[in-house]
Amino acid sequence: MNAKELLKKLQPLIALVVMVVAMSLLSDKFLTFANQRNILLQISVNLCLSIGMTLIILTGGIDLSVGAMLGLAGAVAAGLLKNGLALKVFGVVLQFTPFGAIVAGILIGLALGFFNGIAITRFKLPPFVATLGMLSIARGLTMLWTGGFPVTDLGSQFGFIGAGFFLGVPMAVWISAALVAIFYFISKRTTLGRYIYAVGGSEKATAFSGINVNRVKIWVYALGGALAAVAGLIVTARLDAADPKAGLGYELDSIAAVVIGGTSLSGGRGSILGTVLGCLIIGVLNNGLFLLDVSPFWQQVVKGFVILAAVAADKLGSRKE
């Protein structure tokens, strides 16, 4: 690896360090323990979404439905926990435990992601269109399931995953850190991980070498759905309520974090660690601008420019190569 390549790889890290130094000079509250913990808590949901999004973008795809899947998974888990599932034919109600509700929520995400994968591979729909359809389906299902009202008062056991602490660190941060470790391992050390990079690098070459490209893609979208569901469970537990509109626009933050973290939108290049840096950059940016009392409208403008700069840097880099 020459100096230029190394510099390109370290771009997100350098950007993060520069921002941290700048923010700590501009605000005396920025480096406090409470604020750093707050940043980690705030990025934990986006991190869960972005891990899945990284895998999907690495294969050259995109998933616009993660925010909607987040909302549906959270609503289903909350509904099952609060009201159970009535099977009127048998005259019984399945009263879900917090663990059961969590499993059900993750299975919902997995199933929706699997559906995305099938639509993209079997029906040859472009990922953009297939996941846009899923966005609408999942939002509609969430409204049907909740009747448009929030499901509240879910209990402290369920709330622990979103609002609890372990060793002084929020549980949401532990969960997202564990997912980073697991998916870093999967992407770097397993056959599936190598296949994901291969599919994104060249789908045709991967297929010619005997790898079942469709199966890899279905796995990736299903995992993306499951991770969106985990994010949904954290949001729901943290608020002690499932909001039918939860996750609105989260897909954009997630894609932004992945791109800022150095993952190429054309697939094959990028990493989970880069995405962690991307999430941190967005988190530090949001937090820093808030501490500096910058209007939320300007915050959106600044965030937009950062995303554009990241994509432009990626495109320029690819052209030179």
Binding site: L80, G91, V92, V93, L94, F96, T97, F99, G100, A104
Partner: peptide
């Protein structure tokens, strides 16, 4: 860790 308990609808 049971996922759910079965209760009569009544």
């Amino acid at each position: 860790f049971p996922l759910f308990h079965v209760m009569s609808l009544k």
